[in-house]
């Protein structure tokens, strides 16, 4: 039996000045009309990523146009501790945008700058970490060899490379599997190696393409905690995802892509806030008190408030259950990711 959380005894009161839509939420102008909220200027640290009118048409073997992946996309990612989300359904152009930012693809139109340099600038890539959508790894190398190889590409001294490799393996919970071929790994374990290789150069800008893809809910939570911790340490993070909860949890700003076009962009909190509503949360109230309060609300605000008990989302509930189970389990299995960055990433 799972004991009910204390939170379920809390009461939510939402005043409804605006009519609700069919899903019980008020329509958001930005979201529905494709408007863009104001992006914060960041004159102190500048922009980590600048994308202006980006367009990309893929061609076939004979260079005939095949599909338009991006159409006039513009956004900016402020440098220094922000987590920026590229959100959109499959095929919306998220990965194409990221590949252009890394110089892997060339835009058909428009321009992009990353860390104040063109995307194919080799020196700028010294400060960029990239986790691809799939964990593209050399299947015959071990995690230790993989991290060592990427460390050498960044010209890390051998001792430093070894230290970072050990710390990253510890961070992603793969020390015990450090000398097994990556080809033998599950998708989740390969994802951890992918995450570690993206961090081996202690990047200023971390680009994560679907970072939680293939991970179980616990590992997802840990990756999100890690992203938040890295942002607190001053790194800029650009992540793409089609998982709304991931973006909502960690991204301070976002742009929503659909069919290769930016449909909405701005601060996450600002985009999601329903400013025409007010929510008050109380500890659970006796029926009489609640009745009196509702009468007072009706008299004062002239509208019927909506009353309910707040509930946990499934992710929170799942994590609580698993956490309780793992406390009582003496022989845990599988790799665990600490959710805390390796020491060299925050020192």
């Amino acid at each position: 039996m799972i004991a009910p959380s204390q939170d379920t005894r809390r009461l939510n009161v939402v005043s409804t000045h605006a009519p609700l839509d069919r899903n019980g939420s008020a329509p958001c102008a930005c979201r529905d009309q494709g408007e863009t909220t104001e992006m914060p200027a960041n004159p102190a640290t500048g922009w980590a990523v600048e994308v202006d009118g980006l367009g990309k048409i893929f061609t076939d073997f004979w260079h005939r146009p095949k599909v338009r992946a991006l159409d006039n996309v513009t956004f900016r990612v402020p440098a220094g501790g922000s987590v920026f989300g590229l959100l959109g359904p499959n095929g919306s152009g998220k990965s194409t945008t990221i590949k252009i930012l890394l110089g892997l693809l060339r835009p058909t139109s428009g321009s992009a700058r990353v860390l104040a340099a063109p995307p194919d600038d080799v020196l700028a890539k010294q400060r960029i970490g990239y986790l691809p959508e799939e964990s593209y790894l050399y299947r015959y190398l071990t995690p230790r060899e993989t991290l060592s190889f990427y460390g050498r590409l960044f010209s890390l001294p051998p001792d430093e490379c070894r230290r970072r490799t050990d710390e990253l393996l510890d961070m992603v919970g793969l020390t015990h599997a450090a000398d097994r071929s990556v080809g033998e790994f599950s998708k989740g374990m390969a994802r951890r190696v992918g995450l570690a290789q993206a961090l081996v150069n202690n990047p200023s800008l971390l680009i994560l393409d679907e970072p939680t893809s293939g991970l179980d809910p616990i590992a997802c939570r840990q990756v999100k905690d890690l992203i938040a911790a890295l942002a607190r340490s001053g790194k800029t993070i650009l992540m793409s995802s089609h998982l709304l909860a991931d973006v909502e949890d960690v991204c301070t700003e976002l742009v929503i892509l659909h069919n290769g076009r930016a449909r909405a962009a701005g601060l996450t909190r600002k985009l999601l806030t329903q400013s025409d509503r007010t929510r008050l949360t109380f500890p659970s109230l006796p029926a009489d008190t609640l009745k009196r309060l509702l009468a007072a609300f009706r008299a004062e605000a002239g509208a019927d408030p909506q009353v309910d008990h707040p509930s946990l989302n499934l992710e929170q509930f799942f994590l609580e259950v698993v956490e309780a189970a793992s406390r009582s389990d003496t022989s845990p299995t599988g790799a665990t990711l600490g959710g805390k960055p390796a020491p060299f990433l925050v020192s």
Binding site: K125, Y138, L153
Partner: peptide, 14 residues
């Protein structure tokens, strides 16, 4: 085809 080229070229090598 396996995508490792993309990961490799995202590193600072020409």
């Amino acid at each position: 085809s396996e995508g490792t080229a993309g990961a490799l070229l995202s590193k600072p090598v020409g």
